Amino acid sequence: MTPAARLQAGIEILDEVIASARDDGPPADIIVTRYFKTRRYAGSGDRRAVRELVFRAIRRSAEVPASGRSAMLGLAQEAPEFLALFGEVRGPAAIVDGEQGSPARVIPAWLEPQISRLVEPGEWPVLLDRAPLDLRVNAARANRDELLGQFPGAEPTRISPWGLRLPFDTRIDDHAAFTDGLVDVQDEGSQLIALACEPKDGMRILDLCAGAGGKALALAAAAPGAAILATDTNRSRLSKLAPRAVKAGAVIETRLLNPPHELEMLADWAETADVVLVDAPCSGSGTWRRNPEGRWRLSPERLDRLVRVQAQLLEIAAALVRPGGALVYAVCSILEAEGEGQVTGFLSGRSSWIAQETPIAAGRLTGSGRLLVPSQDGTDGFFVARLVRPC
């Protein structure tokens, strides 16, 4: 492919990404892969170059662009070497007088007032940096120091005792330690959410929003003797946990829940859990490094719905915690309403519950929780709080 043809391919992919964001369809990574499955003439260099163009254009556009051409033209206006490609053979059509690209912005204008006051505007650009690849060592079967030398360029994560950090473009899917279940891909921030649960053998631990089970696997590795139940309302996501648990050598029970009957379906866990983890559905604003088009999928209406769901999940979790047990609430978000605001609302109706400091030696204290951000902590952005029910 010529440079002009690569630019045109990027525009076509961006049109699909924009439509998918509006329709809540597949993410950009999947769209890029699907695009090239039907274009066998594109070599590996072409695929890498086009992918880089697409994500550069996505990262610079906080608002949904009018079109793929608008997004790419905005990028080209900051990188003049691309401007000359408009009008070339197999490239985008020539630029017409007065045509402008999408403006550059880190955070959608409507969302800026929602950002936690602890995250200064000067830190916002780091929210879109390329994220490293973090691995979690399966503590039940392996030692981090022993595995460190098996991954070129790897370093121990700064905060998590289980983590290894690799360059962002490292491939590990065919590495023996990965295929044998000795390591799993997991951002350090997610590892720290499991750490905040303080898992121990003999505990009853319920992961209420387990998804594909990354944090349940971390809990099982840290406390192989714990009884762990992973639940979710999405059958497709939850079904991915069982084969992952087999590979990791973990024993984790799963249970599909049917809203609004969660408490009925968890009656055997009522007031008996030592720890309930609520890693709630959220805006994903802390994961924009990995999913920059997530900004295009968020709206005021969607955020309001998420905040309501988070509050409902806290209500459910509270009924499952035993006296003296803990509720760990976490969101991969830097928005005030999803983090500190939720915990403040929860505690205001439960004066006997108390907030307890988490064993995370990083982040910034905010209300009754802790906020970590990429600029300071090197993790995805997330909020976590540990709330204890009185005996």
Rank of each mutant, 00 (worst) to 15 (best):
M1P: 13
T2D: 01
R6C: 09
Q8H: 08
G10T: 10
I13E: 00
S20V: 08
D29M: 11
I30D: 14
V32Y: 02
T38V: 05
G45M: 13
R48T: 15
A49W: 00
R51C: 09
I58Y: 03
R60Y: 01
A66G: 15
L75M: 03
E78K: 15
L85D: 03
R90P: 00
G91A: 09
D97H: 13
G98V: 07
E99R: 01
P103R: 05
W110M: 08
P113A: 02
P113D: 04
L118R: 14
A131T: 10
N138Y: 06
D145S: 15
L148N: 01
L148Q: 05
S160T: 06
L164T: 06
P167H: 08
F168M: 03
F168H: 14
T170A: 15
T170W: 00
T170S: 15
A176I: 07
L182V: 11
V183W: 05
D201R: 02
R204L: 12
C209E: 11
G213N: 04
K215H: 07
L217Y: 05
L219H: 08
A220S: 15
A227S: 11
I228M: 08
A230R: 10
P243D: 06
P243H: 09
A250L: 06
R255D: 04
L256C: 05
N258Q: 14
N258V: 09
L263R: 14
L263C: 12
A267E: 14
W269Q: 04
V278K: 14
D279R: 01
P281F: 09
G284V: 03
T287D: 03
T287P: 02
T287W: 13
W296E: 02
W296K: 09
S299L: 10
L303K: 11
L303F: 05
L306C: 08
Q312N: 11
L313R: 04
A318N: 01
V321G: 00
E340F: 00
A355V: 10
A362I: 01
V388S: 10
R389K: 15
P390G: 10
C391D: 13
